[in-house]
Design a protein around this nucleic acid. Structure first.
Lengths: 145, 145
DNA sequence: TGAGGCATCCGGCAATGTGACGGTTGCACC
DNA sequence: GGTGCAACCGTCACATTGCCGGATGCCTCA
């Protein structure tokens, strides 16, 4: 895939905030014709830079509990932990990190009970050495893209 | 705001995956007329259930570094830390959590240098007691909505 | 019970946006 | 200087949208 130029970055910048904007308006904003803009967006989609478009739903309205599970592994190559994590749809994101920890697992569960269940399942995995649960009390800032 | 019914949840389910779908197609999928569907979506937007629409960008394509900053505060009412954090556009999300930590700050910066700068700025804030930086090496799972 | 108010739905029209295409321009390469 | 190519533009026919009036069902209260 080619380098993205300034126009492409403009497009991405706008689409990450207003994904439903009409092509015509998008074109006007970046200073290209509609057809050129449509072509660029199609290219960005086809090449995988744009993976899709999502509505951004307020978390409170779903009545879910979010938590971070801070995981330390016995040995760094994760040995099936990821496979297991991937099996649970409540697992929203898993990040390998540097530092005292190895994985940060973000989960979103319907209840604290379910969180505890999930926590226990993961904590008892053979390659998990230590697991700390941090429940999100409040989102103070949220600007994910 | 009223309770969301099954149709509303259908709408949300579809829009969280395909935010750019035309209203007509959305209407056909949930089994309502286009105008009723448009009305419902408008209601969901106005009431804040739908906060916006975002293009989903593959993170690697941006050449950015993501990191978690684990913050312990001197005293729990945050005393201006949030205001300061909000000032930096690299701060993607801040979560108040239970446990040994007080805040989890997620940042996305163009370089490690910038990360260090940001880290230092936050760490020297008077109400920050402790700050640990965890750099994201890899996203193993990502299913944020 | 039946008249009014309200929420929700539908369909239709005019305005706007889209997909598809052909034509222009600028540039690199032989 | 001719050929190929990538990126752009404008236009046509068609699809989608915003906006409306009107139907339907339901609740409330005289």
């Amino acid at each position: 895939m080619k380098e993205l130029d300034a126009k492409d970055r403009d497009i991405l910048g706008i689409l990450t905030k207003e994904a439903r904007i009409p092509m015509k308006a998008l074109a006007a904003r970046i200073g290209l014709s509609r057809s050129a803009t449509t072509e660029r967006v199609a290219m960005l989609e086809k090449s995988g830079v744009i993976r899709g478009y999502r509505a951004d739903i307020g978390q409170m309205d779903r009545g879910l509990v979010s938590a971070f599970l801070m995981v330390t592994l016995v040995s760094t190559p994760s040995m099936g932990v990821l496979d297991q994590l991937a099996r649970y749809s409540e697992v929203r994101r898993v990040s390998s990190v540097t530092g005292q920890l190895d994985l940060i697992v973000e989960v979103e569960v319907p209840s604290i009970d379910r969180l505890n269940t999930l926590r226990d399942i993961i904590a008892t995995h053979q390659s998990v050495q230590d697991l700390t649960t941090l429940i999100v009390l409040r989102r103070d800032i949220e600007r994910l893209e």
